[in-house]
Nucleic acid binder design. Structure first.
Length: 571
RNA sequence: GCGCUCGUAGCUCAGCGGAUAGAGCAACGGACUUCUAAUCCGUCGGUCGCAGGUUCGAAUCCUGCCGGGCGCGCCA
């Protein structure tokens, strides 16, 4: 039995595993000689060879020489002995085909590295990832899916890269709605709390009474005043309500396989005490203007419907604080108290203007000093088959619990066992959300996301389970990798591409790059599996292929884990 | 009206300054006395919305137009 367990050796320095860097280092001197200046070799993977360099194309223009001539000269001056073969191709590309030995050496290093070639960040940052952030008075819907899934994947990835990640669940746990909710609660058993799982029904009932019953409406308003004034009895009721909602949310997160816990709640109520000071500080810096009774900031460059400056309303005309004030308070706290240097807000694209304004005001207030960045990690909407917002037939938003129930039921129908069905169903939904560019809308389609073949979660999970099954049946240990078949070579190169992809996700905050990579890796593995017998291969070849299987398994599992998708050992 | 964003193969999407624009699905044609066929290989399929411009080179950058989505003062 050969478990797909973590390797034992400490991470190496990584250079030998980074073929792009290796090739760049060997190409750079020749380029510098020809150009008489440093030139980025721009080594990329290529379908015409293992790697290519397009550096000559732009260089030739600057030198005023034909690109192919320059490429010939660079090729002739390059010392790639023992590493790769170089040839000029097309308009002036340098095609690089690696020798088998460096590939083998790199893959063997990779196999011995517990971190799969990804060194921990040399310059760790403290960053806050603000994600999920539902209103606690209502159940989770598909509307919360994207922020929760994308944010969790980014938090996992950045943490694994070695950064200090602070997860922030900016839940809506404060505001005028709580007056009516508390009054409704009192009318239905003073000690009671809303029944777990029926938050929406409770909210709707309270809302209906608020709209229809003037007496109830007045009581609710008074209750809001008492809540904001810190009335102890009111606060006790509010805390009970919030606690119950949190329990519900945590159960939902656990089912979704999301890493958010009790410790990550940082709701709007957290910042209430700081709001007067936020206003005072902004006013002190001359950033606030009174307009129609409200205190507003008017950051430059934002105009509204009539071409008039667009306000960011910090304090409402009734003296209450809006969400802009809370967002500003949270931002200030994250930079000042938490020491964050990178703030991520995983929030839907429609709020783009709002966040740009918040960041502009924060910058003007000096809360985003040099070296500290705030980024709106925007994402598109989930659409139904009709191309419109994904809703139920009656027009309501779709409950997340219902989506997961159906996903799991459909996974069961495919033949997955009970435990696997949960992993496959939830994984399919999450993968579908992560597989495309997050900025684009996508169409929610059961049949596509649960397809066993194609770019789907189930396909990746199957590839992993198949590897586990194979390794479980192996009776001897993996040995050194010696790629000989083209499919082994292709798989090895694919495995070596894991680290650059993970880094690019950390920089671009685009998990779909990792998803696409994993699909390519699983495809490469399938090609290898098809062409290269493992268990019935001769001893030395078997050891090599078992090592490739084990490494592919570890890479798939780690990659899926960074996406937040479970990888069961068997389906 | 102003602003943002998107328009790539029948469908769903990658690619976002470089070689004949890729993948998955669908369609069609192959490969199984299988190391789990929940697989693999091949074929078909695109004036990259339209028109200009910048560039040695544009799906990719700029401008305009057409079409869809979203946003534009006390909800978050």
């Amino acid at each position: 039995m050969t478990p797909v367990g973590p390797a034992v050796r400490a991470p190496s320095m990584g250079l030998i595993m980074n073929l792009e860097a290796l090739l760049s280092a060997r190409l750079a001197p020749a380029l510098a000689e020809v150009a008489r200046a440093a030139v980025d070799p721009a080594v990329r993977r290529s379908r015409h060879a293992d790697f290519q360099s397009g550096a000559v194309l732009s260089l030739a223009g600057r030198l005023g020489r034909p690109p192919r001539d320059v490429a010939q000269e660079v090729a002739a001056r390059s010392d790639l002995d023992g590493l790769a073969r170089i040839e000029v191709s097309g308009p002036g590309f340098l095609n690089l085909t690696l020798a088998d030995e460096p590939i083998a050496a790199a893959v063997n290093d990779l196999a011995a590295d517990a971190r799969l070639g990804v060194p921990p960040a040399g310059r760790p940052e403290t960053l806050v990832v603000d994600y999920s952030s539902p209103n606690i008075a209502k159940e989770l819907t598909v509307g919360h899916l994207r922020s929760t899934v994308i944010g969790d994947s980014l938090a996992r990835t950045l943490a694994w890269l070695g950064h200090d990640v602070v997860r922030a669940n900016h839940v809506g746990d404060w505001g005028t709605a709580f007056g009516m909710l508390i009054e409704h609660l009192l009318d239905h058993g003073a000690s009671g709390a809303p029944r777990l799982g029926d938050l929406t029904g409770f909210y709707r009932a309270a809302r209906a009474r608020f709209d229809a019953d003037e007496e109830f409406r007045n009581r609710s308003r008074l209750r809001v005043v008492r809540l904001q004034a810190g009335d102890e009895e009111t606060l006790r009721l509010w805390r009970g309500y919030v606690a119950e909602s949190r329990r519900y949310l945590l159960a939902a997160y656990e089912r979704l396989g999301v890493t958010l816990t009790e410790a990550h709640f940082a709701g709007e109520s957290t910042y209430q005490d700081a709001l007067p000071d936020v206003v005072a500080e902004l006013a002190g810096k001359g950033l606030l203007t009174e307009s129609d009774g409200a205190l507003c900031a008017f950051p430059a460059g934002f105009t509204g419907r009539d071409g008039e400056p667009l306000p960011l309303i910090v304090r409402k005309s009734d003296g209450g604080f809006g969400y802009a004030a809370t967002d500003l308070a949270a931002l200030r706290h994250r930079v000042r108290e938490l020491g964050a240097t990178r703030l991520l807000y995983v929030v839907g694209a429609p709020q783009r203007t709002h966040f740009r304004m918040v960041y502009a005001v924060a910058a003007a207030a000096g809360w985003l000093p040099e070296g500290v960045t705030a980024e709106h990690v925007a994402f598109g909407s989930i659409l139904g088959a009709d191309g419109k917002m994904f809703r139920t037939r009656s027009g309501d938003s779709v409950k997340l619990a219902d989506v997961l129930d159906e996903a799991i039921a459909r996974a069961s129908a495919l033949g997955a066992g009970p435990e696997a069905a949960q992993a496959v169903g939830v994984g399919a939904v999450k993968y579908a959300d992560l597989a495309g560019d997050r900025r684009n809308d996508y169409v929610f389609d059961w049949d596509r996301m649960l397809a066993l073949t194609g770019d789907t979660g189930p396909y990746l999970q199957y590839a992993y389970a198949r590897i586990r099954s194979l390794l479980d049946r192996a009776t001897d240990a993996p040995g050194p990798v010696v790629p000989c078949h083209p499919a082994e070579r292709a798989l090895a190169l694919e495995l070596l591409a894991f680290a650059p992809v993970v880094h690019s996700v950390g920089e671009t905050l685009e998990p779909h790059r990792l998803a696409g990579y994993l699909h390519g890796l699983a495809s490469s593995f399938s090609g290898f599996y098809q062409n290269c017998p493992v268990l019935r291969a001769p001893d030395d070849v078997r050891a090599s292929r078992l090592a490739l299987c084990a490494l592919t398994g570890r890479t798939l599992r780690q990659g899926l884990d960074l996406l937040g998708i479970a990888a069961p050992a068997a389906l």
